[in-house]
Structures are given as structure tokens and as C-alpha cells.
Write a protein that binds this DNA or RNA. Structure first.
Lengths: 256, 256
DNA sequence: CCGATAGCTTGATCTGCATCAAATTGCTCC
DNA sequence: GGAGCAATTTGATGCAGATCAAGCTATCGG
């Protein structure tokens, strides 16, 4: 593992303020692996032996039932995944599959749990990370239950814009098929939702989406700081909430 | 606070194996309060100053957007809520309202965070609790995205049965209006879904639901241990997963 | 006992989204 | 460059679930 990779791992919220000794214990036995695109890293129901740290590439987390498969999250570097299963030493509830060629650090779950036991500060960092993941899922559930599919797409585009702080042109990070499932719709309806957003100044060209009128789009999308982690907050209370991890990876787009 | 209440708090997974000193620090400044039915305990967006421990009654957690309100979870005693916000010292993402007269222990968030800093075992217990909540939400998301409303109802009934281990008669714990929103549907469609389940031996009389043929119902519901925490597991691996907290309160129905 | 109210059910209708079926675009690999 | 394949878009249709509008039932206070 390159020194620069170690620095990137240390940059994660999970390891950011951790004492060197603890970091050594926590990452003991970790090894870097490369996987081609389309590799199943983990099947739901499998016991989870490692904490995964994605250093390069994209990973999709999905769930299956009754022959249907839905995308639950897409991860981009640098981020960890299946921390909750590691903490509980439990079976995975989601499957993980590489969407591209990936570089992944695999850390034995035992090492993580040992480090937690030895260093309450690290255990607190794990708690904060999990609390952030939890809140990301709460936001996600509200998004799913309160908004229709076009509204979800509109908010997704605004979130992308906020993450990239690009003017009015954003790039989609994933295939539309995958994005559709992440947003809880079919690919056909994602197409139609994009078409419906033309009225609000949105035009699509492959992965490049131009937001002609952010104001009009916001008027439809009604972004809300209690659902969309990027949305402007009323006061300046709760700066800490930025520590949250937005499951759908947008904040991971660039180092924080 | 009665001694019996303290015992009940100690019975929570969060406090179960905690040293007496730590328990004292963690619950310092906690005070018991009684609230009438229909009281707003917390409004989404509010800063969260306390960890809430529900000792008696029922509490609903809900979210709002654009004049719509949806139920995210219903809590029954004994359980804690908004731990994630306490850990991050952040604003609440959900509102909390009493559904009945309630008895609630309110513990200052500072005390919890201090206890975590002092005792890595307690910090680990917090991590485990949060990991369980997180996994509950993952299950919930899979339930929402993979199943239709009748399937969700069918699985809910089977989960109730498993929690009460009642033969074939279960009691609904909540008003149907509330249950409908929890399951992601309208009250009208909950009625129709109950009607649709008649074919599978389900009959309803007020809050009392009779499952005439569990086999037929399971055939429709296809319960899955990776979505429904009560469902039978294949092997006997991962006994630890039982430590999970199923957000929608079913496992809380009786002391564990 | 009776009227009032809230919760629930039933029916009719409408909408959003899924599904099925092509047609089209874009990409990869010879 | 072009064949071949996958991804996306577009169109037609059907169904699940929302909405709107009555009716019904149960509970409660008088």
C-alpha cells in the first residue's frame, strides 16, 4: 500500500482524529486488493469478515428479494462500507458489487472491534460514523416516502450541483440504469422524468446535464435541509451535522 | 424514578453490560417526565438536547415535507430514541409525538457523550445500538422498494405473530391510520389490502386479526431473514444479529 | 338512549409508475 | 468504418395505489 493511500484512509472521518497507536491496531492485517468491474465482493447473507475501504473505483450496494434487485447506495472513493455489520459481527444485509475496476483496502473486522475496545475515542468515531449513516438512511426514507419520482430526480440533480459546486452543468456519475434504481424508479421512467424536467430548464446530453434555471428547478424540487444534506440551512446552528455521511455518496465526490 | 424503572433502563441493550460507574455518568441529570397523548416532544429541525427513553406509552416518529406527513417509526417501551442525533449533537431529522399518555426518561446528551468518552465499552454499546438501528432502516428500505403494499402488510402481520408468538391471532398495536402510513400506504388502501388478504385466510375484527392459514400467508409474503428480522434463518450462524434493533418496534413488544 | 364525532370501510375515478415492445443511440471490438 | 451489442429513449397499454366522496360503525358525553 502506498503512503499516499494511507494518508487517504487517515483522511476518512472514521480515522481522522485517531491516535497513531489506535490506527495501527485498527488497520492491522488490512490488505489492499484490486477487483475488476462487475465483481461480487459480498453477497447478502454472507458473514462479514472485513471492513471495506474503497480507495478507487465505484461500488454498488444492492438488495434482492423475490428475483428483484434494487440499488441501495453507490459508493465512491474514499469511503468505507458495511461498518454496521462489522460492529455487530453479523451477516450482510446488502450485496456489494464493483461497477468499475476497484482498489479496496480490506481490514479484518476483529481489528476494528479490538481498536474500539482499546480506545474510546475511536469507538466514538465509529459511533459518529454510524450515526451519520443512519441519518443518511432516514433522509433517504423521507425522500422515498414523501416525494414522487420526478421530484426525487430534481433534488438529486440539485444535490449533484451542490457537491460539485458546478455552475449549471453537472455530470452524472453512474449509468442511468443504475441511477434509476437508486432513485427508486425504472430506467424508462427516469428518461421520462428527465423529459418532464425540460419545462424547468433541464437538458440532458449523455451524462452531461445542464440546469438552465436553478431557480425553476428548486421551485419544483423544494429541497429541504432535513432531507437533502446539501440544502441551505436556516440558521447557522448545527455545523456539526456536516459530519454526516450522505449514503448516496454525493458528499464523497471530493475530499472533505 | 422508581427502582423498577431503573432496572428497566438497565435492561436496554444500550445499558445492559455497562459498569455501574458509567451508568451513573451516562444517566446523570436524567429526569422522568409524563406527557399526555398527542404531545409534540420534538420538532424536526430542533436541536436535540436529550436522549429519550420511553418507559411507558407509545411514541410516533414522523417526517414532513411540502405539507405531507409520514410515519417513520413507532416506539413502544422500553426503547430509546434519537440516539444518532445525540451522538452527533445535531438537529433532529424526525419529529416525535406521543400517541398515548407517556412516561419518558430524558437524559442530557452531554452525559451520554461524556460516558462514551470515559468508557470504551459504553461507546461500543452505543455503536452496536446505532448499527442495529441502521440495519433496521436498511431492512425497511428494502421492504419499501422491493415489495408492494399488500406484501408489506402480509409480512407485517407475520412479524407481529412472531413477536407475540401468538398462535394465529394477533392484535394490532396502533390505529390503522397510523399503521397505514408506517407501511407506506393510505388508510383506504390498508383496508383494501386487508380485504385482499382474505383469500389467504386473514380476517379482521377491529384491532384483532386472525391468521387462518399461516402457510398460505407466508406463501404470499415470502418473509426473508435479510428483510424481516423475525424470519427463520437458514443456518444458525450469526446468532448475534438478534441484537439488532428492528426500528418498527416489534421486537420491543416484550422484554428480551 | 341519542346525537356527535372520529375512525374505518367501500365505491368510483384518476394518476403515476411499471411493463411490454420497438426504435434509436452510442460504444466496443474487430 | 461497420457489425454487434448494450444502453437509452419513445410509444402503447395496464395496474397499483392515490384521491375524492359517501356510507358505516364505534365510542363518548350528554
Amino acid at each position: 500500500m502506498r503512503a499516499s493511500d494511507i494518508e487517504r484512509v487517515k483522511g476518512l472521518p472514521l480515522f481522522a482524529d485517531v491516535a497513531p497507536d489506535t490506527f495501527r491496531v485498527a488497520t492491522a492485517g488490512g490488505h489492499l486488493q484490486r477487483f475488476p468491474a462487475g465483481t461480487m465482493l459480498l453477497l447478502e447473507g454472507d458473514p462479514v469478515d472485513f471492513l471495506y475501504v474503497l480507495l478507487d473505483g465505484q461500488v454498488e450496494l444492492h438488495g434482492t428479494w423475490n428475483d428483484h434487485e434494487i440499488v441501495l447506495a453507490i459508493l465512491r472513493p474514499v469511503s468505507t462500507f458495511i461498518l454496521a455489520a462489522v460492529v455487530l459481527d453479523a451477516a450482510a444485509l446488502m450485496s456489494a458489487r464493483t461497477l468499475e475496476r476497484c482498489e479496496i483496502l480490506m481490514i479484518p473486522g476483529d481489528a476494528i472491534r479490538t481498536a474500539m475496545r482499546l480506545d474510546s475515542h475511536f469507538a466514538m468515531a465509529v459511533s459518529r460514523d454510524l450515526a451519520g449513516c443512519y441519518r443518511g438512511l432516514v433522509r433517504n426514507t423521507k425522500n422515498l416516502k414523501l416525494r414522487n419520482s420526478t421530484e426525487r430526480l430534481a433534488n438529486y440533480l440539485l444535490a449533484l450541483r451542490a457537491a460539485d459546486n458546478s455552475g449549471g452543468v453537472v455530470r452524472l456519475h453512474h449509468e442511468k440504469r443504475v441511477l434509476a434504481s437508486l432513485l427508486g424508479m425504472t430506467p424508462e421512467n427516469l428518461s421520462r422524468s428527465f423529459a418532464a424536467l425540460q419545462k424547468y430548464g433541464v437538458s440532458v446530453n449523455g451524462a452531461v446535464v445542464t440546469l438552465g434555471s436553478v431557480a425553476a428547478l428548486e421551485n419544483l424540487a423544494k429541497p429541504d435541509p432535513l432531507i437533502d444534506n446539501h440544502a441551505p440551512r436556516g440558521g447557522d446552528i448545527v455545523a456539526d451535522a456536516d459530519a454526516e455521511v450522505w449514503l448516496s455518496d454525493l458528499t464523497r465526490a471530493k475530499p472533505r
